[in-house]
Design a protein around this nucleic acid. Sequence first.
DNA 1: TAGATTGTTAATCGATTAACAATC
DNA 2: TAGATTGTTAATCGATTAACAATC
Lengths: 232, 232
Amino acid sequence: MQEADRGLKKGMAIMPGKDQISMTVVRRLPRYYRFLYGLKRDGVVRISSRELAVHMGLTASQIRQDLNCFGGFGQQGYGYSVEQLHAEIGHILGVNDPSPAVIIGIGNMGRAIGNYMDFDDRGVHITALFDYSEEVVGQVIRGMMVQPMGTAADYCRENGTKIAILCIPTSSAPEIVTLLINAGVKAFWNFTGYDVAYHHPETVAENVHLNDSLMTLSYSLRKRETDEADAI
Amino acid sequence: MQEADRGLKKGMAIMPGKDQISMTVVRRLPRYYRFLYGLKRDGVVRISSRELAVHMGLTASQIRQDLNCFGGFGQQGYGYSVEQLHAEIGHILGVNDPSPAVIIGIGNMGRAIGNYMDFDDRGVHITALFDYSEEVVGQVIRGMMVQPMGTAADYCRENGTKIAILCIPTSSAPEIVTLLINAGVKAFWNFTGYDVAYHHPETVAENVHLNDSLMTLSYSLRKRETDEADAI
DNA sequence: TAGATTGTTAATCGATTAACAATC
DNA sequence: TAGATTGTTAATCGATTAACAATC
């Protein structure tokens, strides 16, 4: 008697050759990529899993396991070519082939994201911005004019946009997400509290829950201080 | 022969009663908190782990395990009191007793964070803002005047500030972090690429790696599309 | 009391670490 | 060749799920 049936999950889409890479591993790739970029910039040519582990605070085993999910990038007795490994991981992450994306909501967060991020180096290319407010519509950010929210779904449909970045209040999210999905959007970078993945499991969603992250920090600090007080 | 000695980790600070709560569990608490708030607002009085599981896309077992790390908040045959559970988790997260914090760097991100977040409901209270730029110093955000970065460490020392929110470029992070730690700062909410936890393991750090998050989304979308193409 | 649901122990699953044969 | 280091298999560890006795 299973307690909750979460529907398809386990063997969905069992591919022929390469089997499913766990998200645990995928989430470490950007960090490898970042680190290898630094080594490359500093002129380091080769590195062993052991050295990399020391620098990154991981174990050499883990690094070898992670990289081997995607193929044998190393050479026995030598290690890994920094340049090649950097390029391979970049390729896996798709940084050379950016997908077009739109920002939904140009409040403080949308504006910060729009101005601050180096999107093109991350596999994403911003093509349009949308907002509800008449005051914001028409403003120019990064050379792009903010367009009325009502036109967002049509824009995505006409341009085949696959990624939407949600920087709207949580309460506005359910409606616009449905419209966007109907217009062909497949992936959401979600800054709202709305659980896109739960309500639309057919899409890809990556959440940035800043409130949750801050509360975790708050917990950890209190915990640390309590433990220190107890230890005396 | 261990491959990399990551120093203390396992049995550090073995407390008498309550044993170490895993971060996996802690990171779920804000989501429970958020969800229970919604239920409370909607007038729901009691809820079973099974109902909660269905609504949140978890298993009832997991919810009961998680909550039992902190004590028996439920009642057999009845379930959990929404109001009580919400209050208990809020208490665990320390939302009633906010810690003072400063924002280091008032660029796009610092400004967005400063304007957008409901800090006081998350256990954190912003008391000061700092920036390097002369243009930014003196600006008023949320009723607070931005102060020169050179005064940040002294401010924290004098006011006993324990939390710093890092919204500066990665390259500026190492220096200011050291200054802040020397001034008594214990916790960092880190928006930079600098690995605070690695370089200063004695502190508490919570990272928000927006670039990494975006790259993960980019990977997942490509993966999804490739799988769908292969499946045809 | 009977039904429901927790708290908790046991079983399973997945991720990390260790070990080592293959090989550069 | 000898030394180094990978790729990969086996062992361990931790987190999730299942099961069920306790109890409201």
